[in-house]
Amino acid sequence: MIASTPRLVPFATAMFLLAMGVFMLLPLLVVIASSLSSSSFLVFPPPGLSLQWYGEILGSQAYIEAGWTSLKLALATVVLALTLGTPAAIALSRFRFRGQATIAALFLSPLILPSLIFAIGLLIVFSRYATGPSFLGLVIGHTVITIPYVIRTVSANLADLDPHLDEAARIMGARWWQRYALVILPQCRTGMAAGAFFAFNISFDDAVIALFMRAPNVETLPMRIYSTLEFSPDPSVAAVSTIMILMTIVLVVMLNRIFGLSKIV
């Protein structure tokens, strides 16, 4: 006979989950709520509702420029990370060769080294061997930290698919470019899309590398939010943050559609 589960357990579980929901989501909810405040101070509860802060940021040259910089940076990172990461993922999951485990570990090592340490190294290199931190430096830094995600998603994707299709194409006399264009790359499509979403999200949200690689005339949205928070937070930062939260929600929904959230976990 199975000893029954103590009656308190379902109740305690429900309370625990409720508390967790509040704990995890409250920071995002208060940011959204603050962006709708009619007051120019971040007070709680807001005295009234207003969309004025959205008007404010849309009219702000600095925010619009930072938004463009972040967008260009994220897109450049996605292109570069996919270009370098996808072939590596194909090699690691479709071939067997000596030193494979070591090479796989090398490709995933940016996940292990704290990005703080990497950011400092990058700053030193760009100051010593180039003209200092720059937009290109940010693209390179973000590509390094996002390549492991592309490799993971593409490899997970390839593991689910039939490797014999490529072999069949080879036996039937397909040239190498035909195999890649018609068989292998189409097989990688889902993994590349998921990797692209991760890379975009990480680059668009990153503040650590961006703050170390601070170049004159290059400011991303997270950099701008950080420096505003350091000095004088106001509801216009909340409006920018809310837009970024909404973008993240869209990305999470899309990731769930194409890849399934249960696969990420």
Partner: peptide, 13 residues
């Protein structure tokens, strides 16, 4: 969702 939101924004919250 919180994990994929920028640390700067979560700290702001």
């Amino acid at each position: 969702l919180p994990l994929m939101t920028s640390v700067v924004i979560r700290t702001f919250g």
